[in-house]
């Protein structure tokens, strides 16, 4: 079964599966700092695929390998049917890549940057204007400003325009929304939905778990390993326990009390609520939790059965995966 999968996925129709990564491993500092271990994923044509994980999980390393900027220690990858090692030139001319770090020319203006990148790819801004118009309109008033003088949100939009200027079939966006406020983040995801509708395949990484639901499929990554790959609803739908949201007047005391209760399997703060799973128990879980909280003299106790979020699933997978490490003192 595994073998069969490997065989079929290594020779798929590149028209259907523009991104294929198979068993990618990479370490730095002569093997002492593992960055990725045995990462495999495929992204289908027209898919908006999210790579979700914290800093240091290996997201950027994977992006750099897939965009031919870094060699993997082992494993293979194909972009639009091209091998990331042998065919790097073809890949570079067909993909768009927006690195996490702002990488445009700071002392060229908005317009000069755009013209420059168009020329590099042998095209003209006018030819590709339709694709970038929605985004470019927002920075057009600043077209004579130097890129280095733009605000974060504007830089991000310019970088996206430059990544799109040669009408790439595959777009790689490495943490485009990191450090950006909620309003700009929503705008950015709306832009991505529009690009997706134009048939562009998008691989996007983010440390914000709540952005996962905006993707068609996601891979959760931590410490260089994929914890799961699926649709967001499938990932939350297979959460293996009943999850309860609990709150009381004194939330921090409640958190400490619940964690010290041997009936509690996990307890994490989620905004104004605590998300709780119980060990094997008899009777109604909500009543059990309410009774315990009452016995500890908590006031205004509310307990609800809730549907898990991606962040619940991520925490569950990260803390129960025996291969995971690096999160000491787990509660």
């Amino acid at each position: 079964m595994k073998k069969n999968n490997l065989y079929t996925s290594l020779s798929p129709d590149p028209g259907d599966t523009p991104i294929i990564a198979e068993h990618i491993s990479k370490s730095y500092n002569k093997g002492t700092a593992p960055a990725l271990s045995n990462v495999s994923l495929t992204v289908k044509k027209g898919e908006l695929f999210g790579l979700i994980g914290p800093d240091g999980a290996g997201k950027t390393t994977l992006f750099r390998i897939l965009t031919t900027l870094l060699l993997a220690d082992s494993g293979q990858a194909r972009i639009s049917g091209y091998d990331v090692v042998k065919d790097f030139k073809q890949i570079r001319s067909t993909v768009g890549y927006m690195p996490g770090k702002f990488s445009l020319y700071q002392d060229l203006t908005v317009q000069e940057n755009l013209t420059f990148f168009a020329a590099l790819f042998g095209t003209e801004v006018a030819t590709q204007y339709e694709l970038i118009r929605d985004i470019y309109d927002q920075i057009e008033p600043f077209k004579n400003r130097r890129a280095g003088k733009l605000s974060g949100g504007m830089k991000q939009k310019l970088a996206l325009c430059c990544a799109l200027i040669h009408k790439p079939s595959v777009l790689f966006l490495d943490e485009p929304t990191t450090g950006v406020d909620v309003v700009s983040r929503r705008e950015f995801w709306e832009m991505l939905q529009k690009l997706k509708r134009q048939g562009i395949t998008i691989l996007v990484s983010t440390p914000y778990m709540e952005e996962a639901v905006l993707c068609d499929r996601i891979a959760l990554i931590q410490n260089g390993q994929l914890l799961n790959i699926d649709t967001p609803s499938q990932i939350t739908g297979t959460f293996p326990a009943a999850l309860y949201a609990v709150k009381a007047a004194s939330i921090y005391t409640l958190l400490k009390d619940l964690r010290s209760w041997n009936q509690v399997e996990s307890c994490y703060a989620f905004g104004e609520w605590l998300h709780v799973t119980l060990r094997q128990h008899t009777g109604d879980a909500r009543a059990l939790i309410r009774e315990y909280a009452a016995a500890k003299a908590h006031q205004q106790v509310t307990v609800q059965l809730i549907a898990p979020t991606i962040e619940d699933s991520f925490i569950r997978l990260a803390t129960t995966n025996p291969l995971q490490h690096g999160t000491p003192n787990q509660p």
Binding site: G53, P54, D55, G179, P207, Y268, E311, I315, T327, P331
Partner: peptide, 10 residues
Amino acid sequence: GGVDPVTRRQ
């Protein structure tokens, strides 16, 4: 910023 969900809560 950028920290994993478990460490963020710790």
